[in-house]
């Protein structure tokens, strides 16, 4: 920083306030804050198209996982298998309905919403078009929702539930459980492909 550099050539680590000159790494490399090791820039070749593909897969899987049963139970002739939507609709009153509503929001609606927002933001970027209307807002929302998207925790929850009642009744995984397992992997892949800095930059320069 010999003289006052252009502000647009600088990047500030959001976690520790260290400031650096932007030196864009090559594809597949990562620029990491030297002080707190936060990943600042991590570009990937054709990341946009890949993320959109993964997002579409997630979208279909979440929809399919919503309606197919994730667990089925059998005891003494009585049988029951539930999908996530069943789980939501079974409570019809009382404050505990908040629990099921919250559950469904975190494992279905928020993942779905995030996927749609990501596609909405990235599609014009990948197609070399000007950013979609309110793309910055959409991407911010998608990022803010990231910790609240809990499909992977639900998958583990299914496994715990299965073992918890294993001695009470015969219980088996349904197709939705396996879809949630695949979902977990896809969401991790999608997040690791996504370079936030690159997205923000592309939303800015093509504006």
């Amino acid at each position: 920083m010999s003289t006052t550099p252009h502000l647009k050539d600088l990047i500030v680590c959001p976690n520790c306030d260290a400031i650096y000159h932007v030196a864009e790494p090559n594809f597949g490399e990562r620029a990491v804050c030297q002080r707190c090791h936060t990943v600042l820039i991590a570009p990937r070749k054709r990341a946009g198209a890949q993320i959109i593909c993964v997002a579409l897969a997630v979208f279909i899987l979440v929809l399919a996982a919503a309606v197919t049963p994730f667990l089925s139970i059998e005891a003494g002739g009585a049988r029951n298998s539930v999908s996530v939507l069943d789980a939501a609709l079974i409570f019809s009153g009382g404050p505990l309905i908040l629990v099921s509503l919250g559950t469904v929001a975190m494992i279905l609606f928020i993942p779905l919403l995030r996927v749609m927002l990501v596609i909405y933001v990235l599609l014009p970027v990948v197609a070399d078009r000007p950013p979609a209307k309110n793309a910055a807002w959409a991407f911010s929302l998608s990022e803010a929702l990231r910790p609240w998207s809990m499909a992977e925790i639900f998958a583990i929850g299914c496994a715990v539930a299965l073992i918890k009642v294993a001695d009470l009744a015969q219980i088996a995984f349904g197709p939705a459980f396996w879809m949630f397992c695949i979902l977990t992997v896809l969401v991790v892949v999608q997040d690791s492909f996504l370079c936030r800095w690159s997205v923000w930059k592309s939303l800015e320069t093509t504006k």
């Binding site: 029951n80 079974i90 099921s100 919250g102 925790i153 639900f154 539930a161 219980i171």
Partner: peptide, 21 residues
């Protein structure tokens, strides 16, 4: 922090699943 939700999910799963009249 998010992983604490697991117990809530287990309760939601069990209470919808284990309804055998």
């Amino acid at each position: 922090g998010r992983w604490s939700m697991i117990d809530v999910f287990v309760v939601a799963i069990l209470s919808s699943l284990v309804q055998l009249n």
